[in-house]
């Protein structure tokens, strides 16, 4: 990496900063309870809940910071926040 003058950065440069390590609670997906409403995917502030073609979602744990918005907003409690343990 080189610092451009004034710290100007091109789009997408934060991909290299994997922020998953900030997470304390991990979203656990109960696919059987999911009704494919897509709210979790729409509201994720880090674009880490990705809707698939079949309507279900997958979680990108490289960038999910564990904020829990997806679990809080899920109308069917299909996302559970569990403590990260080694």
């Amino acid at each position: 990496m080189k610092i451009a003058i004034g710290g100007m950065v091109e789009p997408g440069s934060t991909r290299v900063n994997k922020t998953g390590g900030w997470r304390i609670y991990r979203p656990l997906y109960h696919k059987d309870m999911c009704i494919k409403c897509g709210i979790c995917s729409l509201l994720c502030p880090d674009s880490s809940v990705k809707a698939q073609e079949d309507g279900y979602v997958i979680f990108d744990y490289d960038y999910c910071k564990g904020c829990g918005i997806c679990a809080y907003e899920c109308p069917k409690d299909a996302i559970e926040m569990v403590l990260e343990e080694k």
Binding site: A4, I5, G6, G7, M8, V9, E10, P11, S13
Partner: peptide, 13 residues
């Protein structure tokens, strides 16, 4: 480099 909506860049990061 300029701030331009057609060619977005981040300034003051």
């Amino acid at each position: 480099h300029i701030l331009d909506t057609k060619n977005p860049k981040t300034f003051g990061s």
